[in-house]
Structure formats: C-alpha cells, structure tokens
C-alpha cells in the first residue's frame, strides 16, 4: 500500500501544490510538466462531466417546475477514479472547485478516507492560515509537516 503523490489544482486549473511521497512510483517530472498536467487534467475533467450518457433524475423536473421546491439538480460529476496498469488516481472535487489528486498504487484501499483526511488538513492548516492567499500556491509549513507524517504512516503500514 503506497501513496505516490498529491496534487492540488485550483478552480482555474492552476497547479497550487504538488508533493511526491514515494520515489519510484511515478516518473519524475519537471515543475513545468506538472503545470501542463494540471491544466490538461482540468480540461479533461470538464469534458468527462459533459460526456455523461445517462439522464440525471430530477434535472428535468426542476427546470420544468421552478415554482415547486427549489432544489438544485445534481450536476454530473467529472472523473473520480482513473486506473492504469501502474497506478490509480483518485480525484476529489470540493464544492468550491478545488481538485485534490491522489496517486496511489493499484492495490491501495480506503483512498476515500485518506482523501478526506488530506482535505481536513487542507482546511485546517491552509485555509485557516491568515497569510495564505486564495488560488495561490500552497506554502504552509504546518500543512507540509502534518501531511508528510500522515502519509508516511500510511506508506509504512
């Protein structure tokens, strides 16, 4: 069970955080490549949400009778899990449009839980940091430390 890397993409598709936890899991890319990857993924994510072949229950009813209960129709989600021969990519999109990409090995279980914990850390140590500017690269010592120790714990299990 190994967590390879974490990438955080802001709502405009810019890379704001990237950290590799395990050498040898993924190829080493330059920062430039990571920026391109973040932008590409952002676009692909939007397309995958549009490709949805199944009608979403409630989406039609709501537009027809706007006078009734004002519930927002569920929007189609974009890519959530990507599988390849060598790794697995889990993507979590927050309500504000920030994407957390967690790269793990193919046998990793309970990625949802890990993702949740990472998101909690982000809210606690990044969003509550008074010096952090929204949409800008994450440079928070506390977040870095807590994240590293948490992931190390998983990787050594």
């Amino acid at each position: 069970m190994t967590v390879f890397a974490l990438i955080i993409i802001n709502k405009a598709g810019g890379l704001i955080y990237n950290r590799t936890f395990y050498e040898g899991g993924l190829n080493n890319l330059t920062t430039n490549d990571y920026l391109v990857l973040a932008g590409t993924f952002h676009g692909v994510h939007a397309i995958t949400a549009r490709l949805n072949p199944v009608p979403i229950p409630g989406a039609n009813r709501n537009s027809a009778s706007s006078a009734g209960t004002m519930t927002r129709p569920e929007t189609p989600s974009g890519l959530e899990v990507l599988e390849s021969e060598n790794f697995r990519l889990q993507c979590f999109t927050t309500l504000t449009g920030i994407k957390f990409l967690l790269f793990t090995d193919t046998t990793q279980t309970n990625v949802d839980l890990t993702m949740r914990r990472v998101y909690e850390m982000y809210t606690d140590y990044v969003m509550k940091n008074p010096f952090y500017q929204l949409e800008m690269p994450v440079r928070c010592d506390m977040f870095e430390r807590k994240l590293l120790s948490y992931i190390r714990e998983i990787n050594n299990r």
């Binding site: 190829n27 590409t40 692909v44 397309i47 189609p76 990507l82």
Partner: peptide, 30 residues
C-alpha cells in the same frame, strides 16, 4: 480527446509501458 489526453498523461506519469485502463465518474465508467 479525453482518452487521448488521459493516455498521454498516464504514459508520462507511469512510464512508456504503462497503459490507461479505465476511468469512472459518479454516473458512468469508460
């Protein structure tokens, strides 16, 4: 366009021998 981008992304990250297998959203799986 989607599978082409994802395939290239996977090959870049996982090495040239890696292959993109599938992805899943909340509504469907490709």
């Amino acid at each position: 366009g989607t599978v082409f981008s994802l395939r290239n992304m996977v090959r870049k990250l996982g090495g040239l021998d890696d292959a993109f297998i599938s992805y899943r959203t909340a509504q469907y799986k490709l």
